[in-house]
Design a protein around this nucleic acid. Structure first.
Lengths: 153, 153
DNA sequence: TATTGTTATACTCTATAACTATA
DNA sequence: TATAGTTATAGAGTATAACAATA
């Protein structure tokens, strides 16, 4: 993944007028999210972990024994997308599929011991990466932002 | 595009613990942006306009005569992605490529007369769609959000 | 040499439909 | 009948590299 694009204006270029985009939350959210996505990738892509895979790891760690479909629902993904994600995390020896005892159609997902160590270090890296971006915020703004964004969920 | 997924918990399901995700701006931005994206699509996909194409239209309208590369840079897209976008908008008779007089390598982009009418109605629809989501905000929160998000750009 | 538009390519993400085995 | 996991598939979106024309 490349470096986050800035809309800084070189001295010789005309400034660009963004019109209604400057007042549209949808557009601004997309730009900000891109910055966070690029920052995450720069920090974690060498480990083979994308933002989406990180979400799966966290949910499985916090909720041992959840089914694939339950994880997908929690993360607003489709069931079908979970297959590849769980395959990959299982190949990386981070999580395990165990046959559910209650329902033979489904698997229960668990972290491996190695997975627990891995996510500990990974979370630390993710935290440090986000801290860099939080430097752009004043005290309390992060909490303000989180509480507002939660309402759009 | 489907309907935005909610993480509302049905009575019979165990609540899911999101761990560190609950305090990560990157994750919350992605979820919120998904909500806006789905809302935009529900309102505008019948017109063949995606959020990305809307951005191109607005920038061309506000900055007549810009080159493809300049529009791409403004929107943090790659030049190569602009080709298809401009092709599509030109086929829809919304914008025009005119040979640049200063530089024979590049095109200058302009709205057509029809394009100007079109984007007027389109913007109205986009605005109404976002207003629905703004109902979740208290007075002043939209401006707060915009000013904070701008810093991550 | 560098840049514009372009093409080809590829990779990720996402969404849908259909199949199987279970419930 | 409905649901879980799976597969196949297709459409966006995005990124890179290379080429011809032009600067």
């Amino acid at each position: 993944m490349g470096v986050a694009a800035k809309k800084t204006i070189s001295p010789e270029e005309e400034p660009v007028n963004f019109g209604v985009l400057d007042h549209m939350l949808g557009y601004k959210l997309r730009r900000a999210q891109l910055t966070f996505f690029n920052s995450f990738s720069a920090a974690c892509s060498d480990l083979g972990i994308s933002p989406g895979l990180f979400g799966v790891l966290v949910v499985v760690k916090e909720n041992p024994g959840l089914t694939q479909t339950a994880v997908a629902k929690a993360l607003a993904n489709d069931r079908s997308a979970m297959v590849g994600a769980v395959d990959k995390l299982e190949q990386m020896k981070l999580i395990e599929r165990r046959p559910s005892k209650k329902d033979r159609r489904s698997y229960a997902l668990f972290m491996t011991r190695y997975g627990l160590e891995f996510i500990e270090k990974l979370t630390q890296r993710v935290r440090e990466q986000e801290e860099q971006l939080y430097k752009l915020l004043k005290p309390g703004e992060k909490e303000t932002l989180l509480s507002i964004l939660d309402r759009f969920d």
